[in-house]
Simulated assay, not measured.
Amino acid sequence: MTGNPIGGHVPVAGGLATAGLKYAAEIGAEMVQVFVSNPRGWALGEGDPREDAKLREAGMPVFVHVNYLVNFGSPTEATLTGSVAVVRHGLRRGAEIGAAGVVVHTGSAVSQTREAALRQVHDHLLPLLDEIPEDGPDLLLEPMAGQGQMLCATVQDLGPYLEALESHPKVGVCLDTCHAFAAGHDLAAPGGVARMLEELHQVAPGRLKMFHANDCKDACGSKRDRHENIGAGQIGERAFTELMRHPVADGVPLCIETPGKADKHREDIALLKKLRP
């Protein structure tokens, strides 16, 4: 394998490694992303040390995605408290399975000001970064598609968010191509991929650690988060070819989160491998 490792989000019902690695082999994945707790609930589970060891020993990059409820910009105290618990748990479980990074959505201000929401990011998320051991996973910020009062959508939005986290060395970025396109980065236009990556490098140099490689069902700037299979959406194959050839993206893993089951995921991964230089 050379260049960008290419893989996908894998199901883990039946065992983090037993089920996850079986699915990874079925779809031809060179890296995997997993949930370590219920993606749509606050319940936190303990891991199985035997499964953890198998995943660590698999010899492929592993990433964790925390649940979808996490929002450090929320004005609701229960959501803030839950977010702290979920991210702390995700970072601990990430360390136990040898994950390179733990992905978290950058959240929304909901009904309060952006400034107030970013103060909460500073007060509640920054302390968790200080708990990560030096050899532990990075926390990867994933900007969203721009709907509502999202705190990060375009790569420029990462600037104030990183400032709120005092540019902590354990913070990285997970860039979702569908989100970026929906937020207004025209990846389908000539030079669009290069512009976005160069802007990202100016705002967050050296922090890009992972891509969520997804095509987009809707037009650029739609602010609609609807993933499509690679080459079947509005972004198109060429953008992914350009992305994997840009120096800012050199060696950065690509993880699909595209529609369908194993057969479609296998096709998406095979296509990305074909496009890889």
Rank of each mutant, 00 (worst) to 15 (best):
A95H: 14
D215Y: 09
R207E: 13
Q120G: 07
V86H: 11
A17N: 05
S74N: 09
G20Y: 08
A145Y: 04
Q156K: 12
A99N: 12
A29I: 05
K217H: 08
P133C: 09
E166S: 13
D157S: 05
E166M: 12
E242D: 15
G41E: 06
L69T: 10
H9A: 08
A194P: 00
A249E: 07
E46S: 14
G94Q: 12
L126C: 08
E257M: 08
A109L: 05
Q33I: 15
G231R: 09
F240N: 05
S37V: 00
V87P: 07
G221K: 06
P247M: 10
C152F: 08
D176Y: 07
V103Y: 02
D218R: 07
G191V: 13
L162R: 00
V36P: 06
R266Q: 11
P49T: 03
V66D: 15
A53Y: 01
S37W: 01
S111T: 15
C216Q: 13
D176S: 11
A145W: 01
F72H: 11
A164H: 08
G172N: 08
E30H: 05
G98C: 03
K274V: 05
V32Y: 02
P247S: 14
S167E: 15
E115H: 01
D130C: 06
P253W: 04
F72D: 10
R88P: 11
G73H: 03
D48K: 13
K209E: 02
I6N: 02
M210K: 05
L271M: 10
M60Y: 00
E77V: 12
C174I: 09
G233Y: 11
T79Q: 07
G159W: 02
N214G: 03
L125P: 00
G45W: 13
P253D: 00
R93C: 06
D215I: 09
R93G: 04
P11W: 03
T106V: 11
A204Q: 12
A239G: 08
Q33F: 14
Q202T: 10
E96C: 02
V252P: 11
T154W: 01
G107D: 07
V104C: 04
P61F: 11
F240Y: 14
D225K: 08
S37A: 13
T258Q: 08
Q202C: 07
L165G: 09
V66S: 10
R119D: 15
V34R: 07
G221Q: 09
E242C: 05
R276P: 04
L275C: 06
L275R: 02
M150K: 09
T177Y: 13
A17G: 07
E46Q: 15
R224Y: 03
S74W: 08
H65I: 14
R40A: 09
G28I: 05
I230K: 13
G15F: 02
A188I: 05
D250S: 15
N38I: 09
P190H: 05
N229P: 00
L118V: 01
A145N: 09
A117M: 06
A58K: 02
V10I: 13
G20N: 11
S83G: 12
V32R: 04
T154G: 02
